[in-house]
């Protein structure tokens, strides 16, 4: 393949990823957050981020962090950089686990990464928010609030269900994922 064609393909890939990042963010911001009950806890951005890490590796997932983190930081009224930092820590820990522990691209590795990623995301983000108000108010540390654990549990279940569905839809069209059951 000539260099020019290769560069064109990279640009097209970057454009495609940018459009996908925008769509994922819009769906997360408007569609999912409009629901109050279980479906409202779905963290679509996180699921896609971990998915990109599994399929395309660390470089492309860092690009996704820049896009998603930037959008989240300009829309939500938290100090700029909070979401960038949170997504970065999630992806870094997921990358280490993917290389060291979950060494194949099976459904189990995806589920495991989504499980760990969800917990890391909520703990890191809530910790950053708690530090923001540490001196201004006497709020109870979030880990001691029962509702935090209730909502985390609901988020884990909804994220897992979405991961299942997404995995099978993607596997139907693409063979880059391994089988569900690990063959010896």
């Amino acid at each position: 393949m000539t260099t020019k064609l290769r560069i064109n393909r990279i640009y097209l890939r970057i454009l495609f990823n940018f459009i996908l990042i925008t769509l994922v963010f819009l769906i997360h911001l408007s569609f999912i957050r409009a629901f109050d009950s279980w479906f409202g806890y779905l963290n679509l951005s996180l699921i896609f981020l971990i998915f990109v890490l599994e399929i395309n590796g660390l470089t492309w997932s860092l690009g996704w962090i820049l896009g998603l983190g930037f959008f989240f930081d300009i829309f939500y009224f938290l100090p700029f950089g909070y979401f960038l930092l949170t997504f970065f820590i999630v992806v870094l820990i997921s990358h280490i686990l993917l290389v060291r522990v979950f060494t194949n691209r099976s459904l189990y590795s995806y589920l495991g990464l989504v499980f760990v990623g969800t917990i890391v995301y909520e703990v890191v983000l809530n910790l950053l928010i708690y530090l923001l108000t540490f001196y201004s108010s006497s709020r109870i540390f979030f880990l001691f609030i029962k509702d935090f654990w209730n909502e985390l549990g609901q988020e884990l279940i909804v994220n897992w269900l979405a991961t299942f569905i997404f995995f099978y839809i993607f596997s139907f069209f693409n063979k880059r994922f391994n089988a569900v059951f690990i063959k010896k």
Binding site: L29, S30, R33, A34, D36, F75, Y76, F77, L78, L125, N126, I129, Y130, L132, T133, R139, F142, I145, D147, F148, N150, E151
Partner: peptide, 18 residues
């Protein structure tokens, strides 16, 4: 209204809107 906001207390997330 474009979305719900993030809040420090988990049970207050539905009490903020953007």
């Amino acid at each position: 209204v474009i979305s719900k906001g993030y809040s420090i207390n988990p049970n207050e997330e539905i009490s903020t809107i953007l």
